[in-house]
């Protein structure tokens, strides 16, 4: 028998494949992680503060305390993801050493480098990165991202930006499919992405990695809408733990995401959940406070 290989693209992208159709929930401690696992989350995302609190409190947002991440890993047996700042390759090294299952190089935290993202090929642990459009997604994949999530506008409870970004990405993929072979060279230039990757997307009609959506999902119907728009799964950040009844809302979002075309199930899942998180309309956010504009 031949030797075995860890950290290959197939292995890294493969875990994201196994999360498809599911909900990944932001958690800040072991207690929240327990609620998420019990509710049927396919993975949890460990971070210092949920985006709504980062927004409210301001200041620099960083990787979580390793103690908290280890407590979360000890509490649950579903995959544990954790956020590192954009370009902060040492936070990523730390998270890899802790044994997290996925690293999110995330615009929700304060960027550590306004020029470069992390060279994600250097790691055995896979990375997920945010994107607002196809070019950004393909640049992250070029740097080694094994999963993409559309960014939306985290911490708002306003789903409109999530809608815009997933529609933009799928729309740009559809446009590539309609181009002739000789037009793909210019398309690659316009997307600022490598030609080989652009050609692959044009041929297959999809990203070479799993595409989740994030940023503003607060209700079962929001989650189901993202799925109907073509997302492979959903990240829910502040939407669960900033709501009136996190247990019930987490379960309801899981159910609606799984049965996303069944309006009767979504209606049933939407009943009696108590208050949704208090929202902020993205239009009311001054541009410097828009997290989606971090990363390029």
């Amino acid at each position: 028998m031949s030797t075995s290989e860890t950290g290959s693209s197939r292995v890294k992208r493969g875990l994201a494949e196994m999360l498809k159709g599911g909900v990944i929930m932001d958690v800040v401690n072991a207690e929240q992680a327990r609620i998420a696992e019990d509710a049927g989350a396919v993975a949890v995302m460990a971070l210092e503060r949920v985006p709504a609190d980062i927004r409210a409190q301001g200041g620099v947002a960083r990787m979580s305390d390793p103690d908290l991440i280890e407590q979360i890993m000890a509490e649950v047996s579903i995959p544990v993801m954790a956020k590192a700042r954009i370009g902060h390759f040492v936070e990523a090294q730390v998270l890899e050493s802790l044994g997290v299952d996925y690293i999110d190089e995330s615009e929700v935290l304060s960027p550590a480098d306004y020029v470069n993202h992390i060279d994600k090929w250097d790691y055995t642990v896979p990375f997920v990165c945010g994107a607002t459009n196809l070019g950004e997604a393909l640049r992250r994949i070029t740097e080694g991202a094994a999963m993409i999530r559309s960014k939306g506008e985290a911490g708002t409870g306003d789903v409109s930006e999530a809608t815009k970004h997933i529609r933009t990405i799928t729309g740009e993929i559809n446009r590539l499919r309609s181009l002739t072979k000789d037009e793909l060279y210019v398309a690659a230039k316009e997307l600022q992405a490598p030609y080989e990757l652009v050609r692959e997307v044009a041929e297959t009609g999809k990203l070479p990695v799993v595409l989740f959506t994030a940023g503003g999902v607060a209700t079962p119907a929001d989650a189901a809408m993202m799925m109907q728009l073509g997302a492979d799964g959903v990240f829910v950040g502040s939407g669960v733990f900033k709501s009136g009844n996190p247990e019930a809302r987490a379960k309801a979002i899981v159910r609606a995401t799984a049965a996303y075309t069944d309006a009767a199930v979504i209606a049933d899942a939407s009943r009696g959940l108590g208050e949704a998180m208090v929202g902020i309309n993205v239009a009311d956010l001054p541009a410097p406070h828009r997290l989606a504009e971090r990363g390029w």
């Binding site: 290989e5 860890t6 290959s8 197939r10 292995v11 493969g14 875990l15 995959p79």
Partner: peptide, 26 residues
């Protein structure tokens, strides 16, 4: 954890001589 996920070739005589390329994810 995921960092221990791997791919390898497995001899599976019941399926024939050619080994199976197997991907193990958590």
């Amino acid at each position: 954890t995921q960092s221990d996920s791997f791919e390898t070739d497995l001899a599976i005589p019941a399926l024939g001589e050619h080994p199976v390329h197997a991907v193990f994810i958590r």
